[in-house]
Design a protein around this nucleic acid. Structure first.
Lengths: 240, 240
DNA sequence: AGTTTTATGTATTGAACGATACATAACAAT
DNA sequence: ATTGTTATGTATCGTTCAATACATAAAACT
């Protein structure tokens, strides 16, 4: 049975895909209604009738990105034969996905809205949760690797997952800087080249905890707040 | 000798520091003139008289960030006794700097303007160049490590530098997600735990190049463009 | 045919954007 | 005191923002 009323004159899915690519390229705030409607080939009332609001459109765009825009980066992780191959495949797929011709470089979820006060706060939270979801996917596969005896019993799977997710997030910025596929694959290879050390338990004690005398004169600068950063309270002068 | 005319009634350096922190927290486009003037305690004409424009203010804010806002993350790299300690100190300093109380989490340069079409294009380029500068600092220290015999002769210093810079960029996003200092230090430790593998020549051949049968059915998804992403040309209907 | 329902195009809304005009205030030089 | 110069505060400028009012068009239902 058909719908009542005048039928929609545009392809909703196609318009959504166009919107997704624009949000992907420009971020949530960076994509204006004028640009969106132009890219989607429709006028504002059609957009609002079909999607509700800019924010609702963005959420649908995010869902579409997860479903079809990320090239299945995460799909192979749970079913990879080993944790190592899971992470390796994940990073390789990332390098390829972030440099596909015809779509914006980098990850829509990693780059979508990184500044506080930006977007609708709810969108920032949504993106953050989706990033956390990715870490969880990695973590679960790593934990299975421990159960399988592939990884050492004391491996900190949450920390390992966080590390590789961090590498992947950095690859988004690398891609935005114009790095080509080979450059991203090189990063992926190097991340995997460190695998044995990364998955080893307590890398802090095992590898990197020599007292390490800070060679910089005034070595506490990294913890102190330099003068221009200290002032916090309002020093406003002569109220209006 | 004093200046002619009415003297400035506000502390230019303090106002710039306030502007820097707001740009740092919100990004270039995310910081509005209204917010900036409120944070700086001045009115728009004073801002334009003292700094010229929002863009010029941002450039000065960037310079201030590099001079005093990044907690000297890069300063120790050239003078560290070994390349390994240089990178280790760099990542540790990053973890500390990105989680300092009182300043926004993450890096102003990494997060400042990541979307195309955003900002003034020139600012995107400026930030990109500053990121490339950081990679260069790492690369030069690594090359000295090769000369010193600390690193293997065939080490690809540019690729190693790119890898660790990528990790650092990812740490900005991790910090924006609210990760605490210990979480960032854990990432830094794991990045260093993989050091031996990362700096080894040709990690692709040595470690990670087994044929790796893609376990995902339809394994080419990562290279194909799924249907919603294919349409590129304008299919606009019934022009206005 | 007439009513109901939904979609579209034109035009516009109030708010926020970056940036200024203008009169006045505060200094140096004369 | 007068002039020249720079800074400040008030009040905007024109533009763009996300979002709609309204009349019309195109379908289903009666």
């Amino acid at each position: 049975m058909k719908e009542k009323g005048r039928p929609r004159a545009f392809d909703r899915d196609a318009a959504l895909a166009r919107a997704m690519k624009l949000f992907w390229a420009r971020g949530y705030e960076g994509a204006s209604l004028a640009e969106l409607t132009a890219a989607m080939g429709i006028r504002p009332p059609s957009l609002y009738a079909a999607f509700g609001s800019k924010e609702a459109l963005y959420r649908e765009a995010l869902d579409l990105y997860v479903a079809e825009g990320d090239a299945g980066i995460w799909d192979a992780i749970p079913i990879a034969p080993t944790a190592r191959e899971a992470v390796d495949g994940f990073l390789r797929a990332t390098a390829i996905a972030f440099t596909r011709p015809g779509v914006p470089p980098g990850c829509m979820i990693a780059l979508g809205a990184l500044h506080e006060g930006e977007a609708s706060e709810a969108i920032c939270r949504d993106l953050k949760e989706r990033r956390a979801w990715g870490v969880g996917v990695l973590k679960e596969r790593l934990e299975r690797g421990v159960k399988d005896g592939e990884l050492p019993a004391g491996a900190d799977c949450a920390a390992i997952a966080s590390f590789y997710a961090t590498v992947q997030h950095g690859m988004s910025i690398l891609a935005r800087d114009g790095a080509d596929r080979e450059a991203l694959l090189a990063v992926a290879r190097r991340a995997m080249a460190g695998w044995e050390g990364v998955v080893a338990p307590s890398p802090s004690i095992q590898e990197t905890n020599r007292p390490s005398p800070n060679p910089l004169p005034g070595g506490e600068r990294a913890t102190d707040l330099p003068s221009p950063l200290r002032g916090e309270g309002g020093t406003r002068k002569a109220g209006g």
